[in-house]
Design a binder for these strands. Structure first.
Lengths: 251, 251
DNA sequence: ATTTTTCGTTCTGCCATCCAGAACACTTAA
DNA sequence: TTAAGTGTTCTGGATGGCAGAACGAAAAAT
């Protein structure tokens, strides 16, 4: 359902924030051109955001401030799922030495809640807060596999099935087949679909009434994950982490 | 400098966000009462924010969404200081087994960029994005000690010197005396000022032109920090971490 | 040096639009 | 049934957002 009476002024402010996020620090004129707004309007919005800490001015340039991190950090902290899962994801990273991730679904997209790097972890350009299409990652597929089919259809409808790389899922049939496999195995795999040479294993976390709360994963370069590990020790470790979270979430 | 022509509508939206952050999930009426706005106005703002992912509706309640984390996370990721310091703070936490933190100054307040928990770390209720008055923590004092005196005066003027606990800094004289000590030693100490039984050591990070970028700290219970450690091994380790960051930041 | 361009900022007045208040649909409680 | 609560929709009149013009300063071009 969408807004019947959207507040246009607020939408302009939000567009400005997004533009500032994409462009990084920049001046009034550049923003006004990009947004097709008058300079004075942009200036008024910027100074208003600055007054409240959402925007900073350094010299003649404006940029986003850390107030967003405050609001976002506070939101994340208030999520029980994050509180419980966070230490488990850290252990997972430390014990495997690889990159461990935590993802939840929001409005049909996957949102990374955190990532934790082990000793030898690859450095992907994911970060807390980053959004991805659910069908493009092992984490996302682990979640989709345990949502009601109607929700999955809704999400496909709303967010599409764009193919990120030639090897990735790109059609309704491929996706449902993949999700079937995830349910059978209990975990999801991404073998170079998102990034050549990168293997990911993800397991869903469900609450006591069987609803998915999110997913936990480990990402590692193919060179360190043998074919046996891919269906042996590694999923076992990820599933175990997911299980601990499930046990702790309802006491 | 503050806004000459503030966008009032945007300010209402921001007030709504802050209210939602303080109250957590709640209904339209409750927000309208708290903000002294009409229900329809609140509703319009909420649906607008929802449309853009900043707010979620579950049943009859509204709450903040993870879009703020996306913007905040992206802002943090774009900071060179964070990129360079992050691995060092993690090592510091792992090697000491305690809680390590990273703070920067923004608009006269301290903002935690991250925290990393070692094996035995205490669990303070700090989180990435949290703001604190600079004079109340070792991290903040490490930063204040290396800002120009005029900036410090400005910050005191703007943010005050409220005493958080009886033992903490609470006057201009106490503060400047403390900052003098920080400059002499090279690091700042909080011995139970913020929280009874908690000891913190913080070191500033400066760039090549001697400007403070932020501060790094370790927090540990007094029971695990002997009086010798407090002025011996621990500061040494924190200073070394700060030094590594300084070396890496300018190549 | 002088001119020209480009920047951020300020001002004004018209017209878009925000929002109080009332009415509505629905759920829960008495 | 009634009553009190909720979120949502609608309307019109006062509010206030913003295009456009003007300004001062700084940088670039002549």
């Amino acid at each position: 359902m969408d807004a019947k009476h959207p507040v246009r002024t607020t939408e302009k402010t939000l567009a400005l924030v997004e533009e500032l996020m994409d462009r990084g620090p920049c001046g009034v004129t550049e923003l006004a051109d990009g947004l097709e707004m008058g300079k004075s309007a942009v200036h008024n919005h910027l100074t208003t955001l600055q007054k409240h800490g959402y925007v900073l001015k350094t010299g003649d340039e404006y940029q986003l401030g850390l107030k967003f991190l405050e609001v976002g950090g506070s939101t994340r902290k208030s999520m029980e799922f994050y509180q419980v899962a966070e230490p488990e994801v850290k252990s997972l990273a430390n014990e495997t030495g690889e990159l461990a991730n935590l993802l939840v679904e929001e409005q049909g997209m996957g949102v990374y809640l955190m990532r934790s790097k082990g000793e030898e972890a690859v450095d992907l350009d994911t970060y807390a807060g980053l959004r991805t299409h659910l069908h493009t990652t092992a984490l996302g597929k682990a979640i989709l596999a345990h949502l009601p089919e109607s929700r999955v259809e809704e999400i496909i409808e709303r967010r599409g099935l764009e193919r990120k790389t030639p090897r990735s899922v790109g059609s309704r049939e491929e996706l449902f087949e993949a999700l079937e496999g995830v349910r059978d195995r209990g975990y999801a795999i991404d073998d170079g679909e998102r990034l050549e040479g990168l293997r990911c294993i993800a397991a869903p976390v469900k609450d006591s009434s069987d609803e998915v709360l999110g997913a936990i994963s480990v990402s590692a370069p193919a060179s360190r994950v043998s074919d046996e590990d891919l269906h042996g020790k590694l999923p076992e470790r990820v599933l175990s982490a997911a299980n601990v979270v499930e046990l702790n979430i309802n006491y």
